[in-house]
Nucleic acid binder design. Structure first.
Lengths: 345, 345
DNA sequence: CCGCTTGCTGTAAAGGATTACACGAGGGGG
DNA sequence: CCCCCTCGTGTAATCCTTTACAGCAAGCGG
């Protein structure tokens, strides 16, 4: 009844009126512009604090030519360690920078990915982290090319920095490990070559076989989308149709399924079959024997991604060159444990 | 060189000019207002489509009295199934509604939670889903009370709808299950009572003991923050200092740690010790024996949360009463498996 | 004493949509 | 025939901030 207009909260105009200055001065003071007298700035800041002023991010982002209010985080899943761990750490680091993270799940569907990107650009995001889906549409590529982007886990071929696990190296090392134990008939369960990291892992496996003097063409492999169920069925099939003495997993989401299938097969590990799994070690401690593991430091990946994104935003803002495009690799560690042993004779 | 102003993308004013109508008409047509002649509306929509018009969400949200452009999702962690699974499903459902989800991680820190809420209201979010931290600050409560909120997993005491797993029931049922197998000395590893669901679970356990004719005061329990490490150490301690014949876990994040400790203790399961774990079954298939499980349908929780939030947004918009405050329970299932057996004599 | 630079502040124009209000044209009732 | 209501549309205010531009005062060199 007292107020004429019902204002949701206090804004710069209120502060300006109450202090007898202009909105420009208020804005400048609050943004730490040097072009305002220190004592005035202090008075404004103090008053803003007392009145509980909090700037409207929407208006700010709409008005400012550049703003890092929002960034996008576009990933195929979030309920898997490779993504949830990275999302958690990125959210932490970005929020420390005052940036909010809009989460979008694509489920590897190129259409949903494109749709998500459209919505995000409509939200005037400052930049984004993306784990591209299998097939990147032309429109998607166009949208990605005109803003700061950091790729995660997978590459789409655009000229952007990306953070990846050095899976080629990890796979090569794993194969060497197995070959060193005398294994010659090796099975590989990994993700499809259409996924950039799928291709890289497979290359690493082949590389490792060649290194070890094995014919890469003798590799028994199954490439499937990264889900537990497919990992399991693929492994069942692999074990039924070939006589491998070791199985190597190329994909965190596949690991549980593969381990299940191995157990279900009844083979003794590692006496009859050796197993190298991939991913996050959190729960592998329960398996018997504890599996030899390709351990990926997801938190490190996240830190790298967040840092690159912030650098890219700064660069985009100031017109500077920005972080160099191309892969930034985080090296996984091969952690030998009880699931790998000498090949049976 | 040709254009005088460099416009980022086509806006309503462009469309209006090109079609010889006003921006108001364009806006109305695009928003399906009935106050525009059908043939005109159709022409506008067609043209907007051709020109690849996509409305600026920031401007829209800034201008509209009500807008569901953004909602907040405030949770303590995201790298645990109880949260990642819900986040994934919520993101899916909300994006189908054209709403973007801003993810914030609190790590159970009340200060960070408050800070997150401040930032979110600064972003003029339409509403939010929150899993409140241990202690809810007064300022936090005030912020929560003035907007559509759905609580998840935990309650903060404000008058808002919430979706929870019916853990009291699940715990009671679990204790009955154990008591039915002859166990009388039961151990419980759960989350602190300061967490609302911690209190509820403990009540369920006590309730179950009373039901089974056991003295609730004989319950050997350890209440710790929900992390794997603490679950493990708490269980080690519990097993060392008491002679329980069964251990019941009250918290998904604790389950792995408890299982590790049980294994490390060398006790045979279920011959010497029975075990009931809690949470998401995805990887328990690897444990030997497969554990008896309190299975929570996180996807169902997510659907419920998303539905309630959307209802609350509609209600807030139209002034209608909205979804009734209070708990909406999703009932977990007790899935008996190999880790529970008759009590040793 | 004049003109110029520097330093601080204010005015007003973006930024891109929604929407209250006004207005003109028809149609129906009295 | 006049009044009024409805329907469709346009004008302009609004949301809230940032920032280009202008202006004014003071200081200083010539």
């Amino acid at each position: 009844m007292s107020g004429r207009t019902r204002r949701a909260s206090v804004g710069v105009v209120d502060l300006a009126r109450e202090l007898g200055v202009s909105t420009a001065t208020v804005s400048r003071a609050l943004n730490g512009s040097p072009a305002v007298r220190p004592e005035v700035a202090e008075r404004i800041r103090k008053h803003a604090d007392e009145r509980g002023y909090v700037p409207n991010r929407l208006a700010r982002a709409l008005s400012a030519t550049t703003s890092r209010a929002f960034v996008g985080f576009v990933i195929p899943y979030v309920d898997t360690p490779a993504y949830s761990a990275v999302a958690a750490e990125c959210a932490r680091l970005l929020s420390a920078d005052g940036t909010q993270m809009i989460l979008t799940i694509t489920e590897n569907d190129p259409e949903r990915e494109l749709q998500a990107l459209r919505e995000l650009t409509a939200s005037r995001i400052a930049g984004l982290v993306i784990s591209p889906s299998t097939h990147v549409l032309d429109d998607t590529r166009r949208l990605l090319e005109r803003q700061p982007v950091v790729e995660l886990h997978r590459a789409s071929g655009i000229a952007a920095p990306g953070v990846f696990s050095d899976d080629e190296r990890a796979m090569t090392e794993s194969v060497r490990h197995l070959a060193g134990l005398g294994h010659t008939r090796i099975g590989y369960v990994g993700t499809p070559e259409a996924l950039s990291n799928g291709a890289i892992r497979l290359r690493g496996v082949r590389h490792g076989m060649a290194d070890a003097g094995l014919d890469p063409d003798t590799l028994a492999m199954r490439l499937v989308e990264p889900t537990r169920e497919l990992g399991r069925s693929a492994t069942e099939d692999l074990l039924a149709r070939s006589d491998v003495t070791a199985v190597l997993v190329g994909g965190g989401s596949l690991s549980v399924g593969v381990a299940e299938a191995v157990r279900a097969s009844g083979r003794r590990v590692p006496a009859e079959l050796s197993l190298v799994v991939y991913g996050d070690p959190a729960w592998f401690s329960l398996a018997d024997p504890p599996p030899t593991l390709i351990r990926v430091e997801y938190a490190e990946l996240a830190r790298c991604a967040a840092r690159l994104l912030l650098e890219a935003l700064d660069a985009h803002h100031s017109g500077m060159p920005g972080p160099e495009p191309g892969p930034h690799l985080v090296v996984p560690r091969l952690v030998p444990a009880g699931s790998t042993g000498p090949a049976p004779d």
